[in-house]
Structures are given as structure tokens and as C-alpha cells.
Design a protein around this nucleic acid. Structure first.
Lengths: 163, 163
DNA sequence: GCAGTCGGTTGCTTGATGCAACCAAGTGTG
DNA sequence: CACACTTGGTTGCATCAAGCAACCGACTGC
């Protein structure tokens, strides 16, 4: 993106996209949701160029979406965590996840499923537990592999070592 | 974006972003939600370069998010409309809208408010009517100017013609 | 001592974006 | 009739961001 901002929009959607609309940004946030906390982990997971990842992490820190904590002195090494502001992106990610599940389906079914931690119910497009009806937040949900991921794993195994 | 795709992600969020994650795409969808249907309207509203708008509209047509209908023959002129797939981006837009309202607040309050058509209730972050509890879709909601837009209009008027 | 790891930064290349000019087929105005 | 204006683009060029590989500093392991 040449300029990451959208001038004169006076719209909260545009404001949001100015912050998290850059390429890779939301996938980095998703990765941190998924428990990837370190530079190398995120870089391997995404395949993003290291300089771009560095710039995006810095931006997300500046915007108070991520925070980092030192887990090792000398050389200083950091882990990245979501702030409340970052956690509040969860409904956006859930909406994108469900839209993708519906319209860009992975062969074999959804690669990921989101479940309510407490009751195990499926989570709707709106981030609501379909079992108990609770309106969930990021902290209430866990992710489990879906049939699509298992199918892909089988396919990969089959390709490497045909039955 | 150099490549708009995110290879090897096996993730519906990434799949969604491959389709609507390019710069301007989601704002074009938002504009069509807002009733802008013609090339010139959208171009003026967004300030996007015309060649880029042309490319994005074509992509959104290819992806079956928009469809166009001829409203005039010779020269052929088209209006753009949302398909069901496009309408189903509504929860994503609502999530971004609310996140922006919360964390990138416009002075004077939200520039836009979303209301349930039937009962007039406010629409929550999850696209649920806070009045009657119904889980809403794009067709159930209308948009009304919020205090932020009025404040900005007053400020603009005041700047042009000081009291 | 020497390779390997981690978390970057730097430099170069490529390609997407922004911008202005142009175009084609009409419509309006005198 | 001439001429400007509108609409919906397309084309060409300049610029800036993304991808990629190489490098680096400070360790760790052997």
C-alpha cells in the first residue's frame, strides 16, 4: 500500500482499516491469538518477509494492539502479547473466519473450529455460543483443528508416502 | 501489495483476506452498502485512483461480491450492487465499525450509527439489536448519521464562516 | 574455536498504487 | 452546427511498499 491511510473518510471502518488494514497485520494478530509469540515463530508461520514483519510488529506495538515482554536479557528477546485493544479484534477475526469458511471453503471442511471454553459449544459467526447462547469474547473461546486441517494433513502424508 | 495472496495458510481468515484484504476493497463494499452504486460516486466518495477503483470493482465482480446492472444503453453504464456474498460481509463491517468507534474515536462521537429497521434499536458490536435481541443481517439494519458527523459538519461550517 | 539460533537491519529488485492525461459516447447550450 | 461537460473508464509514468537475500550482534552448544 502506498499510503496506509484513507483521508477524509470520517468513518470508523476506515479508521480501523488505517490501523489494521495493511497487508499481514491481521494475520499477525491472528497468529498471536493462536499462541505464536516470538518473531521467528510468526515469521515461519506466515512466510512474511522479516523486514515487513519487523515493521508491522512495531506498528502494532505503537498502536497498542500488541505489547511485548522481555523473556531474556542480553541479548534482549521479547514475546508479543495482545492488549485488550488487540483482544477486542476477536469479533472481527471471527467474522472473517466465518465468511471464509462459507465462501472460500477448504476441501474437507473448515481447517479451524472455535469452541466455547466452558461448555464446548460451537461459536457462531457473531461470536455467540450456539450451545449456551453466551456472547463470547476472545478469552472465552479456544481453537481446535477442524476436519479441513486433518484432511490436508492426510493428503500431505499421502503425497509423501503413497498408500 | 506485491502478491495479494497468503500462500500455505490453510486458514479461512487468510482466505477471506485474499479476497477482500486489498487496499480499498472493503471500503468499496462499505460504500455500496451506503447506497453508492456508480463508478463516479464511489470514486468521489473514496478519493481512490480511478484505475485502482476499476481494478477493484472488477475483482469484486469476479469474486461474486458485487454484481452490476446496466441502467443505460449506449454508452453502457452500470450500477453496482451487493450479492448475497457481499451482503454477508456485513458482520465484518459492523465489527470493524465498532472497534473503530471504540479505539479511534471521532471527536464528537461516532460518525455513523446503525439501527434496527424494525424497532429502531441500536446494533451491538455483534450485529444484534440491543432493543429486541434479534440477530440482524444487512437487510435488517439502516444507517443514520451519528453525533460525530454532525459535529464535523458544524466544525466545517464554522471554519468556512466563523460566527 | 566454530557452527547454529534468535531477532532483527540493510540493500536491491519488483510491482502495486497515485496521479494526470487521454478517450469514447453521449448530453446540454447557444 | 460548434463547443463544453458528464460518465466511465484506460494508459503511461513516477513513487513507494513488499519480497528476498545477505549481513550482523549477542549469545548457546559442542
Amino acid at each position: 500500500m502506498l499510503r496506509r491511510d484513507y483521508p477524509n473518510q470520517l468513518c470508523s471502518i476506515a479508521n480501523s482499516l488505517e490501523v489494521i488494514g495493511e497487508r499481514w497485520s491481521l494475520l499477525i494478530v491472528r497468529d498471536v491469538f493462536n499462541g505464536h509469540r516470538r518473531f521467528g515463530e510468526i515469521q515461519t508461520s506466515l512466510g512474511v518477509a522479516r523486514n515487513v514483519l519487523s515493521a508491522r510488529l512495531q506498528r502494532l506495538l505503537d498502536e497498542d494492539i500488541l505489547e511485548r515482554r522481555r523473556y531474556q536479557e542480553s541479548p534482549a528477546r521479547y514475546e508479543y502479547f495482545l492488549t485488550q485493544k488487540g483482544l477486542d479484534l476477536w469479533p472481527t477475526l471471527i467474522a472473517l473466519l466465518n465468511w471464509g469458511d462459507r465462501y472460500s471453503p477448504t476441501p474437507g471442511g473448515p481447517p479451524k473450529l472455535i469452541r466455547h471454553k466452558v461448555c464446548g459449544g460451537a461459536v457462531s459467526e457473531r461470536g455467540i455460543c450456539e450451545e449456551c447462547g453466551q456472547v463470547l469474547t476472545a478469552r472465552d473461546a479456544i481453537q481446535v483443528p477442524g476436519p479441513g486441517r486433518e484432511a490436508a494433513a492426510l493428503a500431505a502424508a499421502g503425497a509423501g508416502e503413497p498408500a
